[in-house]
Design a protein around this nucleic acid. Sequence first.
RNA 1: GGCCCCGUCGUCUAGCGGUUAGGACACCGGCCUUUCACGCCGGCGGCACGGGUUCGAGUCCCGUCGGGGUCACCA
Length: 462
Amino acid sequence: MSDVRVRFAPSPTGVLHLGGARTALFNYLFARHNRGKFLLRIEDTDKERSTDESTQAIISAMNWMGMHHDEDIVVQTTRIDAHRAALHKLIDNGHVYRCTCRPEERAAEREAALAAGKTFIHRCDCRDGQCRPDAPFVWRFRMPREGETVFDDLVQGHIVTANAEIEDLVIARQDGSPLYNFVVVIDDAFMGITHVIRGKDHLTNTPKQIQIYRALGLPVPQFAHLPLILGLSKRLRSAGVEHYRDQGYLPEGLINYISRLGWSHGDQEIFDYEEIIEKFDLASVNRSEGALDLQKMEWVNQQHIQKCDGARLAELVLPFLSREGVAVAPDDPRLRPAVETMRARAKTLVEMAQNMKFYFIADEGLPLDGDAVAKFFTDTTCPLLHQMADVLTAVGEWKEEAISAAVHGFIESTGLKLKDVAQPARTALVGRAAGPGLYETMAVLGRESTLARLRRAAPGLC
RNA sequence: GGCCCCGUCGUCUAGCGGUUAGGACACCGGCCUUUCACGCCGGCGGCACGGGUUCGAGUCCCGUCGGGGUCACCA
């Protein structure tokens, strides 16, 4: 047991997209690796955009990925009293001042400065107490003007920021409500966070927050800023975790891929969950951002499909089968063996369901691929398939070995080669020219369906 | 534009002063094979550029170029 405490702090304003999922994951991995705590905080201070549905969606996505948080969820809006108390503390010790500058004026100045190629940093006389007496005001934090703020980021390294470049940021609005850079400090301190692991887009917030920690007399945590995910369309990048779930990814496949994006352990590509936890290390996290590669993501997923426990895989593929329009009972005896024949042939559960649905479709309703029929259902092959069916009626126990023996016997009696009948037979059984091995297909299909499908073969049938 | 970060095959990466620059995905061949896959073997392909430092630089320093982030009374 260590004292490591980390948190994932999403705003409930949408789905959990891949970037957020990876931030959560790295926090989770770091916590578990160090036997520390992984906490969840909902940053809902933006009331306009925050929704309960969003909170639920994020939690459910995290659960699907197996990231379960410790302790109670902290909801930021319930912490308003603590935020107010902290503000008063800063007022009392002189770290903040009232500013009556009007935002519209400032915005204009900012744009002018930007257009002129200069840095705009808010500077006004309010800092020296020269405010308009009865005007509405915000609270600004009094940043030091001299020196620099330094911290050692666990990923990004030694980060130095000149204090003169840090603005006196607003920490409370005119209506008194506190702003992000202020509350995040208070709440992280309250939750006892030891390591703040977040996206690199927060890097420039960090020196501001460090100054606030100091002004409040709070211990400054360690920081680790993760490289962002690039590549792919904005749409795909911002797609939620559930989108990938619906595309047929296994949670461990998604986790494996996402964790390897920016982190590595030598040359190893495939990790199961426990292994990542065991080997995860912030020091091995890259500084440069990486791009999503769907093809590799699918390959990683395929590797996990191959490793997946059969019973679990069968259970996972069921909803995808029903989405394909075939209702299969969970206890259907064909399900498990069917899954085994598809395991090496599917990158996703969607693909698996599409490729294995032929097993469960009524024999007379099996759709046949036109090209395959044209090529393999001929005047010579179809009679052979019917004869093969007759031979197969004599098979005793309907098992792969017995079927194989029977088919081979039939082949020899006709003086043909297996390849002369294999593809026609596959077309009859599967509906197209690609599929699992002939005998295993027949074994899973059962005697009745096998015979019916073989006997149905006729030139031009579609 | 200011400030900050980054820059090894198309992509993800190993490398932490001396390597024929390694692996993975993708791609192209081949093997296996009743098809499709899986698997196996082989190939293609990279240190952004320019200066230094050093006996020696992908590795260290500077510059250039390129990419990203950030500059709210959002989070």
